[in-house]
Design a protein around this nucleic acid. Sequence first.
DNA 1: GCCGTTTTCGGCCCGACTGTTTTCAGTCG
Length: 586
Amino acid sequence: MTNEQIAAVFDQIAELLALEDENVFRIRSYQRAAEVIRGLGRELAEIRAAGELEQLPGVGEAIAAKVEELLDTGDLQYLRKLQSRYPEGFLELLQVPGVGPKHAKLFLRELGVRNVADLRAAAEAGRIRQLPGMGARSEAKLLEALQNWNESQTRALLAEMLPLAEQMVQLLRGLPEVERADYAGSIRRGRETIGDLDLLATSQHPERVTTAFARSGALERVELAGDTKVSGLLPGGRQADLRVVEPDSYGAALVYFTGSQQHSIRLRERGQDLGLKVNEYGVFAEQDGVEGPRLAGATEEEVYAALGLPWIPPELREDRGELQAAEAGRLPQLITLHDIRCDLHLHSSYTDGADSIAALAEAARQRGYTHIGIADHSASLTVAGGIGEEQIAAQRAEVDRLNAQLRARNQRMRVLLGTEAEIRADGTVDLTPRIFELVDFVVGAVHQGFSADPDRMTARIIAALRTGMVDILAHPTGRLLLQRPAYAVHAAELVAAAVELGVALEINSSPDRLDLSDVNARLAVEQGALLTINSDAHNAANMDLIRLGVLTARRGWVEAPSVINTWPLRKLTAWLQARRQKKAKS
DNA sequence: GCCGTTTTCGGCCCGACTGTTTTCAGTCG
């Protein structure tokens, strides 16, 4: 079983235990274990083989035993037992906004509601309002939630939500009484998919802002509106939450609403140890349960400082060791968009790209880059109009002409020519070494035969790397977010091979790829792999997508020096030269 | 269920909002 599958089992156990009205801390243990497992770079099977399961944070004797059972049998008796107490599909009820374990069980017990369809029928028949603790209002809210449920239940891609978030922040900043406004939540942390949009504003009069926002029409439907909080649905059905606090609390609120929840919990626990209370309004001295004066709150830096920590970049706030690193003064110097000097995976109009090489070079120059790499599809990817040696030779001539022109105009921009080769099912590459008479570098990629099992896929890619023909491995795990699962290969083995062979692993910035993932990027960093962050743009405008790749890299604790896109052109070409010489010798 | 250079037992983050059971439980993040 994959880490993701095992994490999903623990999430399910947590939901079932909540139905059982179990101790909340026991429930939280399973949730925490699930999150820790999702954040692992290594596969659980490997960690188990090394006898290190119980060394994972949040994994003790009981959970370790369950991991082992899942790895050995692909099944878990404990889960089966819990599941057997509820109808199939019952847990889906908990996905309906406003329905928690208590109500779900009430519906089952009193009305025989077994799934979402039953619930809808009961609500439409007016039977919910007859239940103890429920009324006509509860029933109406439930019906409304059910109506919007389908459209809002899937997560959205980061790229889809970022513009929406920026738009909302602009709107908020334009409201009277608003002093500051920002987006927070998982979008500020740069997560690859986003569940809902968290917005934060400051004002001396929070209630005026929440009222104005609720009336602004920004939300298609307002679900909840209080003095400091508004929730509702954006056009398109995405959930949005606005919180408004006073300026003195801005930093504390930003920390809190940026999360992650686990990061917030760790901060509050740390506060407790120091005799401090941490909430979204600030850090307060606390004695015998009595809240003392506010020690921090206006800025994030101040809040972290009150807890004896340096400011932690939002992308790291996942409870994946960032507090320990901060305490030890070992936070990474995260790569920034500003560090990027080039984009090495661009498609031109020679194949399925929209723009000429010259247009791409100019777009890159405008972005402050000093060089780019064209990597059009090679001949065997016919669906993308892949090109053979003859056309690559024509590209070479054009690139040489263009570089001469750029030099003549004293423009600090150079074009490297690459090609995106196919890694075939047998682990060979659809090119011969002669290609290096024409191109400066080769990007290797798998575009077909994805259904192969992970063992075979891993062997296939590593074999391709061993040919020495591949300088950059594009979108290494082949996932497609919200479409195709993340584990097409054994990432850890792939990283090890890339390190051994000096191949750069790509963080592909396509919105539905972001591959390597944050977790795998971190694994690569820890193993000392070279990385490359590329847009994979098929037109000049999409070169801006590299921002997503940089966010993903930051989530993976990536620092600039290990990313070849941050290197000066001279260093990059020297690296490629050295690889060619090594290949020639072998 | 996990965790611990003050603990191997007794803790475990904190607050907003809603609807309804007039004092709070349920849900959410």
